[in-house]
Design a protein around this nucleic acid. Structure first.
Lengths: 165, 165
DNA sequence: ACAAACTCGTTTCAGATGATACGACCTCGG
DNA sequence: CCGAGGTCGTATCATCTGAAACGAGTTTGT
């Protein structure tokens, strides 16, 4: 009995299947793998490239730095994705007028057309994934994911680990 | 108006910030990065190694094949994680009595002791991550993640993409 | 005006990842 | 038996990733 009490005091014992970071990682890998294969097979796009196309279609022309801030990608990843897209003439890189270091990225007509093709497929995948869920569950899920992300960001900023219970 | 109607018929337009696979990936990367750094810095464990330690502590001795089935990891990943742990004498690899190809992995005393050290930290991280959430929200989140995982698995099995709406 | 310090983006390098091929072993049918 | 085909785990390779160094350009301070 004192053993059970000690466990309560420490929080529950650890079970991998119930461990949130594990569940999150497994679910994310399953979904990302699915999506990645679809875009790769159908359009020859990697996920970073797809994200670039997507934000450029949404926001118009952006510098790489802005894309790094907008999406949560490393600047190296963005750089490579931009090179790949530029080589295929899906985006246009023009010199930034006011800053000689920076380039402005924008979709070409072909890039916009590609985005128009992929977007319905992307939405169909999302719809298929959440087919079994109630709309309010989806809303809540997205909100919770956002909270986890910010919580992880804050904890990463702190040098110290969380206090042990 | 006919334009808005057409959008409705296709489902909403695509916005990256609201796109579930994106949100999931970003949240997972943030959490995994945090956890990975913590285990690496404090105990010199990679995430696959940590998962191995965890399932061995939970389930006792297992073969690598069983671990592959139990966790969702590639057999190559498991193989390398097991080698690393064996080199540090945290797990013991003994020949399988009935199958000469297979090895049985089990935690050594040192491995169990390490697990005892990490588990509270792991739980503290989880607790810190979900600090802002209601308990029933956490339960629901885990269930929803499970559903996404199975949905992704099913879709990956099918050759065809989801029907466009 | 000029040098130090900073930012943008690329390159390089080291580590992680997973598909594939492989060697070793087991099993099953003849 | 024994050979075909399967499974367990490892090795190899090609790819992806991000940390760090770097060149080019800009800003700041004096």
């Amino acid at each position: 009995m004192s053993r059970a009490k000690a466990q309560d005091a420490e929080g529950q014992e650890l079970r991998l299947d119930a461990y949130l970071p594990y569940r999150l990682s497994v679910a994310s890998n399953a979904v990302s793998g699915l999506i990645a294969r679809a875009y790769q097979d159908r359009f020859g796009l990697t996920i970073p490239q797809w994200r670039l196309v997507c934000v450029l279609a949404e926001d118009g022309a952006l510098t790489q730095g802005q894309i790094v801030a907008r999406t949560v990608m490393d600047k190296v990843t963005v750089s490579r994705a931009a090179q790949g897209l530029a080589k295929r003439r899906l985006v246009d890189r023009t010199e930034h007028a006011e800053d000689g270091r920076s380039h402005v990225l924008a979709l070409t007509a072909e890039g916009r057309s590609l985005h128009g093709e992929i977007a319905p497929l992307a939405l169909a995948y999302e719809a298929a994934l959440i087919a079994g869920l109630a709309p309010e569950e989806v809303t809540l899920l997205k909100r919770l994911l956002g909270r986890l992300q910010t919580a992880a960001g804050q904890l990463a900023g702190e040098a110290e680990p969380p206090r042990l219970a």
